[in-house]
Design a protein around this nucleic acid. Structure first.
Lengths: 158, 158
DNA sequence: CGTTATTAGATGCATACGCATATATCTGAC
DNA sequence: GTCAGATATATGCGTATGCATCTAATAACG
């Protein structure tokens, strides 16, 4: 709200628009995430753990911990321990990075890949159900395009 | 990928589109959330705590714990203890619900409201910066509309 | 080279979280 | 009314997480 000639008027300022868009996005994220988390497809895997398996499944090469972390809402120590648990469970393998002795490269084991595929199939189908019930195909591709724009880092802003 | 006359072709199936849109949305959420979380405006309040203060600040009436929880990515016991901490810190007040002795109604104290306003102002400005750098006003309103559609619960699906 | 600054990842420790369950209250059927 | 089931919130307990810090290795600079 602001005033024009002393009368209060509602104006869609850029600031207001930006915050409404962000809040709507947050709401959609929460609603759908809660729905997905409530399903019974995560056989002994937490959402964070699945995120790691999924991210690795899309990487052609073994990845560093730090690289993985860029895609997750998790602190570096948190990820370090989560990876440790997954290694102990036989879903992830560590190998030393020949190019940098500080780093360790992470990759899926066969079992890890199998778990990711099994859970991933069920999850993808659930995602498709939820999205199709709410958006048309055109709306989905528009949303994907806008979210991809939002996903740019500072440097990528042309 | 599927095959037509024996040749592999890429087809944008509804399932594929839905998952790409969801993944893009997740990515945007993570990227921006990490950016916001890294800022120095959260004087001793966690993101979850701010979520509670913000949600209550928008409610004209005191709210139940369960109602609050619907907007947060937090389990019911988690929220129960988070609220307890905020009450101890003097940011939230509990009052018995006259209509149901099981429930307690939650509202912001003056200090809670002040903290929310102070943090909220800085955060809103940061959100506006991040969004404006990535989307035009038209794109923002399109995104807001699509995210609002996604935010519908099962029953609200016309 | 040697010294300092930086980076990748791990660990100590306090705390926050989720799951299962307990407690208190309400609702409905008989 | 009373008793079974549902609902709102709280608690016990084990685990996961974040912050600060540590270690090891690389990079930068003289």
């Amino acid at each position: 709200m602001t005033t024009v000639d002393g009368a209060a008027v509602s104006v869609a300022t850029p600031m207001r628009q930006a915050n409404e868009a962000w809040e709507a996005l947050l709401g959609a994220h929460t609603t759908l995430m809660r729905r997905f988390a409530a399903e019974d497809m995560w056989c002994d895997i937490s959402l964070h753990e699945y995120d790691v398996l999924y991210t690795l499944s899309k990487c052609p090469k073994p990845q560093r911990l730090g690289e993985l972390g860029r895609h997750l809402m998790l602190s570096q120590p948190g990820l370090s321990r989560l990876v440790e648990r997954l290694v102990e469970r036989g879903l992830l393998a560590r190998q030393p990075d020949p190019a940098d002795a500080r780093a360790t490269l992470l990759s899926l084991t066969e079992e890890g890949r199998a778990v990711q595929r099994r859970v991933g199939r069920a999850h993808a189908s659930s995602v498709a159900d939820a999205m199709s019930a709410r958006l048309t195909p055109i709306q989905m591709s528009t949303l994907a395009a806008l979210a991809t724009l939002l996903n740019r880092t500072e440097e990528e802003l042309s």
